[in-house]
Simulated scan of single mutants.
Amino acid sequence: MYKISEFAEITGLSKETLRYYAEIKLLEPAIIDPSNNYRYYDDGSYFLAILLVKLRRFGLTVQEMIAVMNDESFANLETLLKEKKTKIQMQMDDLLIKVEEIDEFLASGQEEKEI
């Protein structure tokens, strides 16, 4: 069992995030000691926490993460990740277009200076 501070350190999630995730029932501690309200996490919690870290890194919203965690079979996870990947690729394409437009704009300004 891990105290919240230990668990935060090994997962990379802050104590505040862990408390928030517990509050919204996304990742609850394995045990809460009723005498002092200390939160304890176990190895099963660790694997769920690492999954949440990855999902957050992939850009999933808290609501999307809740949907994933509520689907205990993770049947829709692959579809959701593929959709997220497509969306990220579209954003990258849009950003590349903007970079090209900026380059063209800067180049046109250089041409005017040369005239």
Rank of each mutant, 00 (worst) to 15 (best):
F47V: 05
D103Y: 03
M90I: 06
N36K: 02
S73P: 03
I32R: 15
I32K: 14
I115T: 09
V99Y: 02
R57K: 09
E78I: 03
V99D: 14
F58N: 07
R39D: 07
I31A: 07
R57G: 00
D42F: 09
Y46C: 00
K25S: 15
Y21M: 11
Y38Q: 10
D33N: 14
A75M: 04
F105Y: 11
Y41G: 08
D94L: 06
S108M: 08
L26D: 14
V68P: 01
I32V: 15
L51K: 15
M1V: 03
L106E: 12
E100I: 10
K98H: 01
G12N: 03
I32T: 15
Q110K: 10
Y38E: 09
A75Q: 12
L51D: 13
R57F: 03
Y2S: 10
L95H: 09
Y41Q: 06
Y2F: 15
L48Y: 10
I32C: 10
E78T: 10
A67N: 11
S45G: 02
Y2H: 13
A67H: 08
D93Q: 14
K15D: 14
E100F: 02
F74V: 01
I32G: 12
L18S: 08
L18P: 07
L95P: 03
D71Y: 00
K15C: 07
G109S: 02
T11L: 12
Y38P: 01
L80N: 08
D33M: 00
D43N: 12
